[in-house]
Write a protein that binds this DNA or RNA. Structure first.
Length: 960
RNA sequence: GCAGGGGUCGCCGAGCAUGGUCAAAGGCGUAGGCUUCAGGAGCCUAUCCUGCAGAGGUUCGUGGGUUCAAAUCCCACCCCCUGCACCA
């Protein structure tokens, strides 16, 4: 076994035995409850889960070290269809799928066989998942664990839905879905062979009249164009039917008749015939009573909507092209007994005024794009472009009745509603593209009736949900408006279905609450599940009144005890535990859950809990990529949590992920980077334990003060970063920046045995502990500290330890070195001797004065000069000062303002002494003799007379 | 199509909200040196271009604009990612 693995197992066991992550209410301590959306158990946990949960764990561990009572619970989502589907595929002997289980999920053969039982499968993945979560070191309180099919959990969900229903958030209605006629069930995206992402579209049917009692329901997305109709198109070769539809006589395509049967229409086909039969007949516009002919249109697809299309050649490119065709090729009309002259007389009717177009936009766009005929693929493009343009900016002309002067966008909805009221319009759904079910059956649209919905359209509910958002923190902040947009956007959500695992709807036989609807407030269940498990509370005892008491404080525990048999103490303990932990303080997930789960969570809290129990914060992060691509089992780039930990170790896995991205950016998992990080950690171990072992010298030179001071900034930055869930920034500073500080100190010091360095390393380990807990525990134990670093106190920023003088001293060295290197680079020489000349004391006087004025924002050269001239000591140097002042001003603009302030505070420093103290270091660095002089030094070696160039914080340099 | 997020020096990625401190953090990679029996690791240095003195020049998706001054503000355009519902 590798050393890493040994260390990991050792600490995992120690944590578990010491129960340090098990959190109970403690009124003396402030609490933090963090949560991660429970993962769905139809497969193993993967690095995507790992990334998101690592952020939660880093936050939890950080808060725990800060002294908070931190609770991080975990559970498993079993609700829904996919688990069933997966199991069925195993049962069916689906080779491809079984191979994935075997090779990607690493399921042993003996277990695989048992996967024909979906619950067994879920239990297997749950067990594996728990081991993985433990092995990566997430600081979870396992006493609260559950799965969503546990009867006790289901009692909780029943309570939730009973409440929602009573409060009026659950409604009943109809809904169009993509439907597989063979499976007799909705066909979700994942169940499709063809047509992923395709959703039903609603057509308006305008019921044109053919004779007194027959309708031609023409399908359109643009019902406003009824005012511009010139004729009807019927495909002469397609099969049509005359049918009674909800008591009316309709003529529609054969396919349409079948479809309408599934859309809450009573359809009775009376006779079938070819479209040809209709050509040449005259129909009536039910609104304007105008009469128009039916013409042959071969482009009409009987498979789309009703197969009946009306023609608006002024605004629809296809219609214009088809009409033009007939007008130019009158011979085809002969077959239908239509007088070509009648067709030639048809003129487009313009009804929409739109910028950039004249009378007949369709005619113009066809000419502009050089579209030849209705078979030209560009016709489709033209249709879309024109539709978009007319919809957004088109204004209806005077011939549009009550809608005149309005934009299409404004009136569309009312217009449809009006037409329906007048009885001239109906509607039907159809799919814009073909959808084929996994079972190879062609899908259709079905309107499900008696569906149960969560009424997310409810304006008051929306308003309340926004209040929840307003009072909480969202990380990153930019996601906040997204939540608000989603709240606006959400409509009724079908919250129950008839198949799959889940909690039966308490009042609806045969309905099961679907996955995204049974996972909205379960964080509250964690708070009490510990008691339910420890006291083996029976599901039957968990009556709604029990939850009412626990969550709302309603009712009397003594009476409850009598009613359900849970004793008063236990009831009160549960109530207290809920009150202690709730609301949760952070919920973090990937951004894909923003438009659904996370927003649902907000809605349900708004509905069911008072403001004091509303979520405190939600974190959102990107979606993990693997080697630059989306991770997919089918793409062969699927990496499990277990696999990653085995290969790279827990700490490297966690940190590689966290260093990948923060905010909503997508992190990229690159195997090479992870192994680099793994070896970096090995180096870190050697580095740190070496220092810890040798720390003995009690010293307090400027270098120790510098190190201490630098460390304070790192502490501050890391603390602020993790607080805002900027885990990437936090880890970067904790790991790399701090490491660089330690290195600089060691270089300058030339030794590693100072106690101060050992102390700094301890602080360093503490800052790293939330990110790389195993390694830090191991090194912590080597420092001789008792107890776990996981619960050691987080380093606090200490203003008193900030030493700006020490920092500026090192800045001086760094600046001098970089100037020297720059010169060497330009000169392309190897130095034998370096001479530094520090500025004369009068220059400091000038420098500080200029600095002071600069900081105050009033650095005027002439005024400064006057002031200097008035000074007896400076008077003799006025010639030099004249040249110096502009140089100083320029140099100061390059300094950050906080450094300027520090320098002013420190006043003059003895640069010669500082450089002298770094003499050995500089010698070694440049591999040359180094001499330090003051500009005032009469005996200085200065053959090129460089010394006069010396400035405060910028000694002159001479190299030979 | 609608909505949200993005395009930065070989790569990954900070910075852009409060324009100057930005040739632009940090990591990775690459090159050179030190250390080492060797490999690895570690440590140091360099890494847009130019420059025989600490300097200058050209960069931050594209094209305009505002300003003494823009990666950062405004406008237009191009490209990429994510979500869009009965499904986790």
């Amino acid at each position: 076994m590798s050393q890493t693995k040994q260390i990991e197992q050792k600490w995992q066991a120690k944590w578990e035995n010491a129960h340090i992550f098990e959190a109970d209410p403690d009124p003396k301590r402030k609490k933090i409850m963090v949560t991660f959306p429970y993962p769905y158990m139809n497969g193993p946990l993967h690095v995507g889960h790992t990334f998101t949960a690592s952020r939660v764990d880093a936050y939890a561990r950080f808060k725990r070290m800060q002294g908070y009572n931190v609770l991080w619970p975990w559970a498993w989502h079993w609700t829904g269809q996919p688990l069933l589907g997966a199991s069925q595929r195993v049962a069916r002997g689906d080779e491809a799928y079984i191979r994935v289980l075997r090779e990607v999920d690493d399921v042993p053969e003996s277990e695989l066989k048992k996967f024909i039982d979906p619950l067994y499968m879920a239990q297997y993945y749950t067990n594996e998942g728990r081991l993985a979560v433990k092995s990566i070191g997430f600081s979870v309180d396992w006493r609260r664990e559950f799965t969503t099919v546990m009867p006790t959990y289901q009692k909780f969900i029943e309570w939730q839905y009973k409440n929602l229903k009573e409060k009026g958030y659950v409604t009943r209605g109809t809904h169009p879905v993509v439907w597989c006629p063979k499976d007799q069930s909705p066909t979700g995206d994942h169940d499709r062979q063809v047509g992923e992402g395709v959703t039903p579209e609603e057509y308006t049917l305008i019921k044109y009249k053919l004779g007194e009692h027959t309708f031609l329901p023409a399908a359109t997305f643009r019902p406003e164009t009824i005012y511009g109709i010139t004729n009807m198109w019927i495909n002469p070769d397609a099969a049509y039917v005359e049918a009674t539809v909800n008591g009316e006589n309709w003529i529609i395509s054969q396919e349409a008749a079948e479809k309408l049967k599934e859309q809450e229409k009573k359809v009775q086909v009376k006779r079938s015939f070819k479209g040809k039969e209709l050509i040449g007949q005259i129909f009536e516009n039910p609104l304007t009573k105008g009469k128009f002919p039916i013409l042959p249109g071969w482009f009409v697809d009987p498979k789309t909507a009703t197969g009946v299309v009306y023609s608006v050649p002024a605004h629809a490119p296809y219609d214009w092209l088809a009409l033009k065709d007939l007008q130019e090729k009158p011979e085809v009309l002969k077959d239908f007994g239509i007088d070509p002259e009648d067709v030639k007389r048809i003129k487009p009717i313009s009804i929409i005024k739109v910028d950039g177009f004249g009378e007949y936009p369709a005619v113009e766009i066809v000419e502009q794009m050089g579209i030849k005929d209705q078979h030209d693929p560009k016709a489709d493009e033209a249709t879309k472009a024109l539709y978009k343009k007319e919809f957004h900016s088109g204004v209806l002309k005077q011939n549009c009745g009550p809608y005149t002067g309005k934009t299409v966008r404004e009136v569309k909805d009312t217009l449809i509603a009006d037409f329906r009221k007048l009885g001239v319009a109906d509607s039907m759904y159809d799919l814009p593209e073909q959808v084929v079910c996994r079972c190879m059956t062609q899908c259709i649209v079905k309107i499900l009736s008696d569906q149960w919905f969560l009424d997310y359209s409810d304006q008051q509910w929306k308003a309340k949900a926004k209040e929840v958002v307003a009072q909480m923190a969202i990380y990153p902040d930019s996601a906040k408006q997204w939540f608000n947009v989603v709240i606006d956007w959400l409509k009724e959500w079908a919250c129950a279905r008839t198949t799959g695992f889940g909690t039966p709807l308490p009042w609806g036989k045969g309905w099961i609450i679907e996955t995204l609807s049974d996972s909205t407030i379960y964080m509250a269940f964690y708070t009490i599940n510990k008691h339910i498990k420890q006291s083996s509370i029976k599901p039957e005892a968990l009556k709604p009144e029990v939850f009412d008491y626990i969550f709302y404080g309603k009712g009397n525990p003594a009476e409850l005890e009598k009613a359900v048999g849970i004793n008063v103490d236990l009831l009160e303990a549960m109530r207290n535990e809920f009150l202690y932990w709730y609301p949760f303080d952070l919920r973090n997930s990937a951004k894909e859950l923003v438009p659904n789960h996370l927003t649902f969570c907000i809605f349900h809290h708004a509905a069911l809990f008072p403001p004091e129990h509303w979520p405190k914060a939600i974190g959102v992060n990107g979606m993990l990529m693997v080697e630059g691509k989306q991770m997919h089992k089918s793409k062969g780039n699927f990496i499990t949590m277990k696999g990653a930990v085995e290969k790279y170790g827990a700490d490297a896995t966690r940190c590689a992920l966290l260093l990948g991205a923060e905010g909503m950016d997508d992190p990229d998992w690159r195997a090479e980077n992870v192994s680099d990080l793994k070896s970096k950690f090995e180096a870190l171990c050697g580095f740190a334990s070496g220092i810890v072992a040798s720390a003995k010298n009690q010293e307090d030179t400027v270098l120790e003060r510098w190190l201490q001071s630098k460390l304070q900034h790192r502490i501050k930055d890391v603390t602020v970063s993790i607080d805002e869930l900027k885990t990437r920034t936090g880890l970067q500073i904790a790991l790399f920046e701090t490491w660089n500080d330690l290195r600089w100190y060691i270089q300058r010091k030339g030794s590693t045995d100072a106690k101060a360095l050992g102390e700094a390393v301890k602080v360093w380990l503490k800052m790293l502990a939330p990110f790389a807990p195993f390694l830090c525990e191991e090194l912590w134990s080597q420092t001789g500290e008792a107890g776990f670093i996981s619960i050691a106190s987080w380093p606090a920023f200490d203003e008193a330890k900030v030493d700006v003088a020490a920092e500026e001293q090192e800045n001086l060295i760094i600046d001098v070195m970089s100037d020297t290197s720059n010169i060497l680079k330009a000169m392309k020489i190897t130095p034998k001797r370096l001479c530094y000349y520090t500025a004369a004391s009068w220059k400091w006087q000038v420098y500080l004065k200029v600095l002071e004025k600069t900081l105050a924002g009033e650095a005027k050269i002439n005024e400064l000069m006057k002031e200097f001239a008035a000074d007896k000591d400076l008077k003799p140097h006025m010639k030099d000062i004249a040249g110096m002042v502009p140089r100083v001003i320029k140099a100061l603009t390059k300094l950050p303002s906080d450094r300027k302030a520090n320098i002013l505070k420190i006043k003059a420093v003895d640069e010669k002494e500082i450089l002298q103290s770094a003499l050995g270091f500089l010698k070694e660095r440049f591999n040359a003799e180094v001499s330090i002089y003051s500009e005032d030094d009469q005996k200085r070696y200065d053959p090129k007379r460089r010394a006069v160039m010396a400035m405060p914080y910028q000694p002159a340099i001479y190299i030979e």
